[in-house]
């Protein structure tokens, strides 16, 4: 199981890469492993505004479905257009080719609530 050190994590098993006021969001290696073979990904539209905690997408395997939540508030500035056609990228490369959306932060305060890698690893083990 892969847990990159430079990322932040949520209890909903999303990862967040922070670069100035732009954050990139995806689901963790642990999450994709739990779901199994992912067959479908639904993403928001560029320009959508999300509040922290809003559902922004859906990830489906053959027999399970999982909502994906915005860990921070902001505007969607880019989505991974390749993902709906290649949902297996979420399984094969969750932190790279499997990224889901990029958001422009409206409030950086929420970042403080995210877990660092050690905290997330501990969270997963407890789960």
């Amino acid at each position: 199981m892969d847990f990159p050190k430079d990322l932040k994590y949520t209890e909903e098993h999303e990862w967040v890469l922070v670069e100035d006021d732009i954050v990139t969001i995806g689901v963790t290696d642990f999450a994709q492993d739990q779901l199994g073979d992912i067959v479908f990904v639904e993403l928001p539209e560029v320009g959508d505004t999300l509040e922290e905690g809003d559902t922004f997408g859906v990830v489906e395997s053959v027999k399970a479905v999982s909502d994906v939540y915005a860990p921070v508030s902001g505007e969607v500035v880019e989505i991974n257009e390749a993902l709906p056609d290649e949902p297996e990228a979420l399984n094969n490369s969750p932190y790279d080719e499997g990224w889901m959306i990029k958001m422009k932060l409206t409030d950086s305060g929420a970042l403080a609530d995210l877990m660092d890698v050690a905290a997330y690893q501990a969270f997963v083990e407890k789960d």
């Binding site: 479908f40 489906e60 395997s61 053959v62 027999k63 399970a64 479905v65």
Partner: peptide, 9 residues
Amino acid sequence: LATREQHIR
């Protein structure tokens, strides 16, 4: 495409 359906969702 069973994830649309009642037994899963």
